[in-house]
Amino acid sequence: MSAFAFTPEDRAQDRAQNRAATLGLLARASGPRLAELLPDLPPFDWLRRPELGAVMLRGRMGAGGAPFNLGEMTVTRCALRLADGRVGQAFVQGRDKDHATRAAVADALLQGDQAGRIEAAVLAPLRAEEAARRRDRAEKAAATRVEFFTLVRGED
């Protein structure tokens, strides 16, 4: 039975995985939409003011071989600390400093007793909207899937 017990390391890894998934969701969301869902920001101090930069994207030659540099994309990052000491980080695609700020605030709030509220008010709608966008694309793609049929010619 002990094999199924959660160790503190498992819990820490779980928390890291959840946080990584959430930071990804916040990064992929649109800045204006995040501002609608999280309009009011609690007081905080900057650890790193929103900073605009570039990340070099890599691909793999032949899709699975050695990496090569494909080109850069714009990214905004920041870090902040809430009054209770919780730290929030954000790395988001694009040049929207407000998007990065709100993503970092959400990250910090999710580590405290307001996690449930942020999950329901911010993350759940973002997740649903992202799933809808994926489904939208997948359904349009499916409509353009080619259904081949073979014409039999001559006699067998």
């Binding site: 605009l52 930069g53 570039a54 070099m56 793999r60 899709a63 990496p67 540099n69 349009k140």
Partner: peptide, 21 residues
């Protein structure tokens, strides 16, 4: 782009799992 600080490099993108259009 020359004015932007470089934050680092991404992991190589996994084109096998792309959302295909």
């Amino acid at each position: 782009r020359t004015t932007l600080p470089r934050f680092g490099a991404s992991l190589p993108v996994d084109t096998g799992t792309m959302q295909i259009s």
